[in-house]
Design a protein around this nucleic acid. Structure first.
Lengths: 116, 116
DNA sequence: TCCATTAGTCACTTTCAGGTTACCGCTTTT
DNA sequence: AAAAGCGGTAACCTGAAAGTGACTAATGGA
């Protein structure tokens, strides 16, 4: 039996891994509007803890979607910004949101349930 | 401080939840080519267990992406098919895959690492 | 002198999607 | 009479991610 797919090199899976984390989309959305300091992000993402926020930011940085600028001041100041590459993600997110509207159309026709 | 977003009604988050499960993309990919029986899916998704496959299929069905047809025969026969709504997902997945190619371009320029 | 501030880290606990193994009903094949 | 085939279900386990609370460094201000 042929192997129809190898999960590891599926481009869709690979892409979703980049922003599939629990809080990554909210973070990217916030940074798409403005460069933000750590604390500013935290206050805009409801109920995220420092540990998890740090984590998600580190991963986004490692994937090249955001950059981190650390000012050597006291108290510390750290700013996060979407990279040029990170900005290329925005149109895709808009496409995804657009499809959600299509889903709502189907729901209006009773063909699809929105909530289970 | 204004709440810039509520995660729950983010259309991107909602969409990704539909196919973010561990095996949902492979399953959708397989069904995008053919209607398939349970066992045919299982054999094409490397190393998925029956329980998990059942689970993922049930969720995809609940979300209206696939339909399940149970023939009352013995031994049992159950066929899974992409719904019309499920088919509308395909172009989106193609967009996502296309963005991955953009990512690879950036990687070629050394601006983004593909693997960490 | 002591406190507040910022961006974390550390150690620990909780959660739950996903995985494992065993079992089932009903029929045909051996 | 036994085994194989199909599409599951039930009970249990596991590992990674997420969450919690306490702690820190270095400075300015009351």
């Amino acid at each position: 039996m042929e192997k129809e797919l190898e999960n590891a090199d599926c481009p869709v899976t690979a892409t979703i891994a980049l922003f599939g984390g629990r809080w990554k989309l909210p973070i990217l959305y916030i940074l798409s509007k403005n460069t933000r300091r750590f604390g500013e992000i935290q206050v805009r993402v409801p109920s995220i803890s420092k540990k998890v926020l740090t984590n998600q930011l580190r991963e986004l940085e490692a994937d090249g979607l955001i950059s981190r600028k650390h000012y050597k001041e006291m108290p510390p100041r750290v700013e996060y910004t979407l990279t040029d590459f990170g900005k290329t993600l925005c149109p895709l997110l808009i496409d995804i949101a657009a499809w959600q509207r299509k889903r709502i159309e189907y729901a209006d026709q009773g063909e699809v349930k929105l909530f289970n």
